[in-house]
Design a binder for these strands. Structure first.
Length: 271
DNA sequence: GAAACTGCTCGGTTTACGTCA
DNA sequence: TCTGACGTAAACCGAGCAGTT
């Protein structure tokens, strides 16, 4: 009801952002989770046609469509498949991957060596039952990977190989770790952004309510003036003040311009 | 210039593992 | 102690893109 009324008043409430917000880097900085302080939404009350349109710039790429993931159970000709860690020595035994075809590849001697070194979990299998064990990186390995990630969120082949050698892991494992790490970073940043926008939305909703209320009051005031015949108008004593020259002052202080509310400069805004 | 190939990243998913009620 | 729910992270898959041949 209130909203409908407000829509007929030629006044417009608008939510806007600066026209050139600093878009976050596609590769988030290592010290992530810095809240996006560079763009600050604002709520305006103004005449229609003057209000800036709502523009929310979406960071990141949008060309990445979701994949359907039809599992075709086919051999991939591509390299870089590391297969599974700690796989049983006997290839005909497949205790894991319920029908799932793993990427196979021929391992070079260095990779075989690295794989041996990386199979610390299976090394703990003393009963010879090689159920699939997922590698858990040690604290030292994770710390070093984190340290490296802080320096570069992506690795070139040389860095990858060096890191793998240093950690006694396969390059593929390092690659996967960085891949997952980037995904986690992005997810976390998205959550931070989401929380930030939620708070903004909350604040702007409150401001919207306040402005709607103000609008209603102004409309009621306007109606009161237009409905009363001018001849019958009498000034209430409290408003009937005069300035020094005996001229009556305006009974109500009306702002000459719409009041634009900027939550950034207004301390009442929490966003 | 077009096509095939390669290598990489990304989004989404699966799954082993750890934790906790 | 056992167990199921749940979260986390390693591993995987398919798609897209850019560079090379």
């Amino acid at each position: 009801m209130g909203l409908d009324d407000a829509c007929n008043t030629c006044l417009v409430l608008g939510l806007g952002f600066p026209t050139t917000p600093e878009t976050p880097p596609t590769n988030p900085p290592p010290a992530m989770a810095a809240p996006a302080t560079s763009f600050e939404p604002f709520l305006t009350l103004g005449l229609s046609g003057e209000c800036c349109p709502l523009t929310v710039t979406e960071k990141g790429d949008v060309n990445k469509g979701g994949s359907l993931h039809h599992r075709h159970h086919e051999e991939l000709p591509t390299s870089a498949g590391a297969g599974d860690l700690c796989r049983p020595a006997s290839p005909d035994v497949s205790p894991f991957s319920s029908g799932r075809v793993k990427r196979e590849r021929e391992l070079s001697s260095e990779e075989v060596e690295a794989e041996k070194n990386s199979c610390r979990v299976s090394d703990e299998d003393e009963d010879g039952v090689n159920a699939r064990k997922k590698l858990r990186l040690t604290k030292e390995q994770s710390a070093l990977l984190e340290e490296s990630f802080k320096q570069h969120s992506t690795l070139n082949p040389n860095q990858k190989q060096a890191l793998a050698t240093q950690l006694s892991l396969k390059p593929r494992q390092v690659e996967v770790w960085f891949q997952n790490r980037r995904a986690r970073t992005k997810l976390k940043q998205t959550e931070v952004d989401c929380e930030f926008l939620k708070r903004c939305c909350e604040t702007l909703t409150n401001e919207n309510r306040r402005l709607q209320k103000e609008l209603q009051e102004l409309k009621a005031l306007k109606m009161a003036y237009t409905n009363i015949p001018a001849a019958t108008l009498t000034m209430c004593p409290s408003c009937e003040r005069t300035d020094g020259d005996g001229n009556r002052k305006k009974p109500f202080p009306m702002p000459s311009q719409p009041r634009f509310y900027n939550h950034v400069t207004n301390p009442s805004a929490a966003c």
